[in-house]
Write a protein that binds this DNA or RNA. Sequence first.
DNA 1: TAGTGGTCTAGACCACCCT
DNA 2: GGGTGGTCTAGACCACTAC
Lengths: 244, 244
Amino acid sequence: MTIQRPKTIVEQVALELRQRISRQTYPPGSRLPSESDLAAELGVSRTTVRTVLARFASEGLIFRKQGDGTYVNERLEEVDGHYGRTWDFSRLIAANGFKPTITTISIEARQITPVESEALQTSSDSDIISMERLFHANGRPVIYTTNIFPVQLFKSTIAALDGTLPIHKMMQLYCVEQIAYVITDINAAIIGKRQQEILRRNDDGPLLALHETFYSRTHLPLTLGHSLYDHKTLKLRLVQPWES
Amino acid sequence: MTIQRPKTIVEQVALELRQRISRQTYPPGSRLPSESDLAAELGVSRTTVRTVLARFASEGLIFRKQGDGTYVNERLEEVDGHYGRTWDFSRLIAANGFKPTITTISIEARQITPVESEALQTSSDSDIISMERLFHANGRPVIYTTNIFPVQLFKSTIAALDGTLPIHKMMQLYCVEQIAYVITDINAAIIGKRQQEILRRNDDGPLLALHETFYSRTHLPLTLGHSLYDHKTLKLRLVQPWES
DNA sequence: TAGTGGTCTAGACCACCCT
DNA sequence: GGGTGGTCTAGACCACTAC
């Protein structure tokens, strides 16, 4: 284990143990070596190992039993990739067993609407970039999403935008501010004709509508997202540890 | 039952700091004392303080800036009670600013169906308790929920069941096994006439349908829940910290 | 009783931000 | 330079479980 990929020791240990679990060196249901043994083997302190195991436990990857040991979750496949982290659509699609692709429907600059101006806490005469995109699972459209960004957020011109990137990649590459947290409101909605055609849906059942607001570290709303989510193809699943 | 409030030092510190934040001793947007100062004042190690602050940060309650300080989230009201912890319906209703009440529609014993038997991984001829309940916000029905439990889970007879308790309280009081984690699938659904009447809804718009499976520490599915959630009255909101 | 995870401490060094 | 949070260590003691 000489890989220096991740910066911190905790991250290196996390990567190593995550691999051992996913490669079934520690298969589902099995007991991990004790914290002390792992610490000794990896040459780190027990505290460091515990930090990693605590994170895994909160993701539902493992379960710890005092006086007994630490066990790999038997339902790994159901749990992996669904907890804690932000809902990254590409990862969600992958977690459901499909190959994700992103296509851009449109990218355009336009005036902000009063509603959007309110939500973004910005002046009502500024311009925004509006971006319509489609996420596919094995080529089949499953998520239709619209994002808007204030123009002053961008480092470069919008001509250079690559709409096939995940949103956090785009922000990293093109924007002056980075995302710290997301607040998502979950709704159910009947969709219109145009959206139905875009998503190539035959039945007219309801879809999930996600309203996302992306915030900076300083609590400034950076971007808005509005996504229609085909829950029949793609499970929207949450793993929540029970509080003591 | 003498309530031994928080057992551990971490819990005591967490309670104390949570109160200071919610009582606005540290108002939204303000900077907390440094970790060292807090540790000294409370008479605990810095590590203990950091454990608590890390938990708060993951809930979105505070934000930490290296080299600068720790700040209370300015959008406290929006965030509080929505992240990390399991979605306890009563708490969700309270977090939306309403007074929660629970009424029982029916509690009955019946045979398990093949689908339920599959989901609970139990034998197909066992009996279950089925419980229909209604959650109200300021007296208005907002969540209609059905839970089923295998009978062998219960310590006492079902006659003694108090259907107005939150599910974790019920499990604590009546059941031999306790809940360790929950997997929730989120769907959108059009509801039938009966359910529409129960929820006293005038429009026939779609609702959120939550499918919950409650697991024990040993990964045994204990209970199933199926809930219809009026997202127009009650925000279903998620705060997700962005991964580094 | 031996071994496990759970809790907590005291202190070290670093990276970063401010002035 | 001085203070802040970020990382990590080594070791103590406790509570619990399996044998």
